[in-house]
Design a protein around this nucleic acid. Structure first.
Lengths: 267, 267
DNA sequence: CGTGTGCTTGAGGGAGATCAACGTACGTGG
DNA sequence: CCACGTACGTTGATCTCCCTCAAGCACACG
């Protein structure tokens, strides 16, 4: 928790205020459901350790995953703002969640206006990522979808500050990959096979290793612009506000490749 | 613009501040592109009149629409926060946009902290709608997707306060419907045919009329909870914060139908 | 060692895409 | 008022990507 707060782009007083707020730490095991939409939504939750996934289900049990949750992120803003969450959250690894009661969070909002602005950033970026996933699921063929997801995972893990030493393996069960991409596990398996055959990835025990990041990104037609990774700092009132490229945009220049070949979009 | 501000859940002083902020009104015609992601993003935009659609495109020109924009909404928060928008906005009807320079918006944020909180609400609701669209595109068959979109459109138009007198017709070209649902126009046409044959909708010149809202919602397995329509007011610090059902949840009781039949989700 | 859990592989089927006409409303200019 | 072009929608034939169903396999764990 302390580590989490320290990295927020907030003033010291604000960090102290958060640290002084009564909170509870809950630990979950890989596979646990962290919360469900039918539970009372009276707490705000922050993932401080581990990896989690947000999903919704259909009446027949089919599942669609929306987003990975890396530390350190407020999951479940709906809970704070509307008193109920609209999705499930499951732990993909052992995970640690900090819970703060909704009322106290709203007090923090009122006393430290930089906090809602920080959350606004987070939510806007998250919406952009969701938009890109929708684009994938709606319009990209399976192999591009998969390549895109793997590339996104790699970059976001870097951006979230996971040490690259800590195994480059992407530990995602094929069931979850399918739920992200709107595919069946069988088809995920076959599609992984294709990427393997192309020499772009490797599979060990449980986990995918990216052998050729650039090649994968090319298949995916990946453009890192949607991650908005260059603007981690809160906005500066009245000052010229330009983003400088982070590692992501350095690798896939956003201006250059973003809308090459967009003839036809206006048909 | 004045009408827009009056309806915001803000204090009088805040409304005045917005009204006193220098702004520009731009008008667009049906079919115009209002903004594109490659344009300089130095203004915040609010749709005050008309109907617009957000979309992204693939290199080959395929398009995926994410969301309808009803008045009165801040489109394009990415522009304010990150200095660039991540999508296109097109006018589905003649439309009116208010533009305020990014710097002035950030000043408003700093001086009236209720404003970013309002936007946080808007953005969170918008993300929830996007999540539901992803669920549709990823997991629902075409006929449910279409029924869901039409039902969502009907409810959101009501919630946005469009007078029901003003024609119950849903004026969406099949091309746009397809782009929302990840389908081709041909398949949209066939699917509309099925709903017509079931007596759920009717087609006039250009526009769909819903004959049987409840029947359509049943096909869609529609649950209005994701619209978060009961919580238009900003959050109340420290007070118990419960949402009361709006017209939407009155029609499709969210608690009752929400997660009936969720056995199997945990397979 | 059995049992479970996740992954793989194959055969067959189907929802939706693609390709190609054709129809219909509407605007524009003759 | 009619000829023509354009924009949308419809309809049909064919194809294909992905799903479904069904085994079989590999590995972890009791």
């Amino acid at each position: 928790m302390i580590r989490f707060v320290r990295h927020l782009p907030l003033a010291e007083s604000e960090k102290q205020a958060i640290l002084n707020t009564p909170r509870e730490i809950r630990r979950f095991q890989r596979g646990d459901t962290i919360y469900r939409p039918d539970e009372p939504g009276d707490v705000a939750r922050i993932l401080v350790e581990g990896l989690a996934v947000q999903y919704r289900i259909l009446r027949n049990g089919e599942r669609q995953s929306a987003d990975l949750v890396f530390p350190t992120r407020f999951c479940d803003l709906g809970c704070i703002l509307f008193g109920e969450s609209d999705h499930f959250l499951a732990a993909l690894t052992d995970a640690e969640i900090v819970e703060i009661s909704t009322g106290r969070v709203l007090d923090l909002f009122a006393r430290y206006p930089q906090i809602p602005i920080l959350l606004l950033h987070q939510e806007t970026r998250s919406r952009s990522i969701l938009f890109e996933r929708l684009l994938s699921v709606g319009r990209r063929p399976a192999i591009r979808r998969l390549a895109h997801l793997l590339t996104e995972f790699r970059l976001r893990r870097e951006l979230a500050g996971v040490p690259p030493s800590r195994s480059k393996r992407i530990l995602l069960q094929q069931r979850w990959i399918g739920d992200f991409l709107g595919l069946t596990t069988e088809h995920v398996s076959r599609t992984i096979g294709k990427l393997k055959a192309m020499g772009l990835i490797e599979q060990h025990r449980n986990g995918i290793v990216i052998l050729d990041p650039a090649g994968l990104a090319r298949i995916a037609e990946f453009d890192a612009g949607y991650l908005h990774s260059g603007a981690e700092a809160p906005p500066q009132p009245a000052s010229a506000h330009r983003r400088q490229g982070g590692p992501a945009s350095a690798e896939f220049g956003s201006a250059g490749t973003k809308r090459a070949e967009n003839k036809g979009w206006n048909r």
